[in-house]
């Protein structure tokens, strides 16, 4: 359903950010992409919806080739890809509701957007999402009046407002405290699963990745250095991705997670195997 083949990106300065990336997702999965800063995580995510134009390679979402699309084709393709950002990227001076409804912009006319006259279905879907992310009471607040965690919830609601076929998530928790980070990550993963939406999530925090991922991909120097399950991430794998370091603490702490988030992962695996 989602296939990347031989994707490369060389910036005009001659810096190669991505080299021959291959990635295949045949069923809805939560895929976490880890790797050090500059490994190409953000570039990879943005090459998929072409906020950054890839140099070569192919990206296919549900059998549609994205990289060769023209302007209007690309806009239609972007409607199917919801994106969540590190800095939330809300329009500060608009209300929470306006921000969430902006997820429908690809489907409405200029004048509909100007008059903020979205269809009853869209408005009702927006209320439902706001209720789901716990911001029902804030729907008329201005986005800049919210806390970081709340702002990211608005960002999540906006992305899901698109009813996406793929979620692109770029460092969703890097600007949040550890507790809020877990809550936000749990929310994203739960919503992706509820709706059967595959998600590609960039993340710095290896522990967080391991506790929520169906699959982990490690990028190093613009190449895929690891592709496997959370359990397969070992000292050696982390060294391959990030370089030499004492990883014992990172791995050990996760093995008996005090917050019990692993239960969540295990129960999900159970659910999947019983369903399949």
């Amino acid at each position: 359903m989602f296939i990347i083949e031989g994707l490369s990106k060389t910036y005009s300065g001659g810096v190669t950010a991505l080299e021959e990336i291959n990635l295949e997702m045949l069923k809805p999965q939560v895929v976490m992409i880890i790797g050090s800063s500059g490994a190409g995580k953000s570039t990879l995510i943005r090459c998929i919806n072409r906020l950054i134009e890839p140099t070569t390679g192919s990206v296919k979402l549900n059998d549609q080739e994205i990289t060769t699309l023209g302007k209007s084709g690309l806009r239609k393709a972007r409607r199917q890809m919801g994106m969540i950002f590190q800095e939330y990227n809300l329009v500060d001076r608009l209300t929470v509701m306006e921000n969430v409804l902006s997820g429908r912009l690809g489907y409405v006319s200029f004048w509909t957007a100007y008059r903020r006259k979205y269809s009853p279905e869209d408005v009702s879907a927006a209320y439902e999402l706001l209720d789901r992310v716990g911001l029902m009471d804030n729907c008329n607040s201005r986005a800049d009046a919210l806390s970081g965690g709340q702002r990211q919830r608005v960002g999540i609601a906006r992305a899901l407002m698109q009813r996406p076929k793929l979620l692109l998530v770029d460092e969703p928790t890097a600007s949040l405290d550890p507790k809020t980070s877990r809550q936000i990550m749990r929310l994203i993963v739960e919503l992706a699963e509820e709706r059967g939406t595959p998600a590609l999530i960039n993340i710095h925090d290896v522990e967080l990745a391991r506790s929520f991922a169906d699959r982990i991909i490690g990028l190093a120097g613009g190449r895929v250095a690891f592709d496997g399950t959370a359990e397969e991430v070992s000292d050696q794998v982390l060294t391959e991705i990030y370089g030499e370091e004492d990883w014992s603490a990172t791995i050990k702490r996760d093995a008996h997670d005090p917050n019990g988030d692993n239960d969540n992962l295990l129960s999900r695996i159970d659910k999947e195997s019983s369903a399949g």
Binding site: R79, Y88, N89, V91, L105, A113, R158
Partner: peptide, 25 residues
């Protein structure tokens, strides 16, 4: 530019990006 990028990523047209992403700012 982040907010503009986000509006662009929803599949909005150039005019819509100006209206929702740029004008309020």
């Amino acid at each position: 530019v982040g907010a503009v990028e986000a509006i662009e990523a929803t599949g909005a047209s150039k005019l819509q990006i100006l209206l929702i992403g740029v004008l309020p700012q």
